[in-house]
Design a protein around this nucleic acid. Sequence first.
DNA 1: CACGAGACCTGTTCGC
DNA 2: TGCGAACAGGTCTCGT
Length: 277
Amino acid sequence: MPELPEVETIAARLRKGGRNHASTPPLLGKRIISAQVFWERTLAEPTLEKFKQKISGQLIREISRRGKFLLMDVSGETLLIHLRMSGDLLVETDDKLLSTYYRMVLSFEDGIRLALNDPRKFARVWLTANPDALLSHLGPEPLAADFAPDLFYRRLVARRRQLKPLLMDQSFLAGLGNIYTDEALHQAGLHPQRISTSLDIRDAERLWMSIRHVLKEGIRRNGASIDWVYRGGDFQNYFRVYQRNGEPCPVCDTPIQRITVGQRGTHFCPQCQRLEE
DNA sequence: CACGAGACCTGTTCGC
DNA sequence: TGCGAACAGGTCTCGT
């Protein structure tokens, strides 16, 4: 489910509380009373015993995001959550029933709970004093002020790879997944299988702009909500190519095509995104 | 180094 | 209707 805009939306909701439809209290400044883990592999680090003991009584001091990781600072340590394919975080009160797909629940003071809902069980949670061990391999934040187009160009031509798998490589750039990569490449008019070294500075600048534009739009729409994992965003209504195979390209009306690139379903316009000039 | 296949998981949708 | 295959917003590890 979650790429950068979805994780950013969730982080903001946990920080400030839910706005629009679902009104939930902020977790910032709240104290954790206890933890329950229903699928052991969800907890990557430390052991279940140590985790329960260390997390109890902790105050949430800060909530942030790096790439697709959600970070919650507690005293001396950081709680990191990666939602992978089907994870979601729900804030609720403890008179609600636990869902079958809850893999971990943190109970806060005032009867508030944070539930990690994750049907496919891919999500992972870490509690560590050294979050950099997990985060240091990540590439730049695409929305950061110091992520400049010329830096992006240099990184692109430093490797010889197809654009789509390269953009989704978290060590190259942190935060893009299948949806936003397809959308950004379409907007930039670049074929997903175009080789990175073949780009000139103008191509790179266009792609830089498209990536940032698409991510900002995603955040503005509170992320995308598709399938049965609904979370309140509506960016799915603004997809130009993702899961729109057969539908007309919004730019030129050519039917959108679906191919497989790097084992991932890939959507593009064969007219706007040509392999060779 | 780059790439493909297979794992990890469960649920939905599609095709016969 | 039923049943298997394909597919799903991610990442890791292994072999070539």
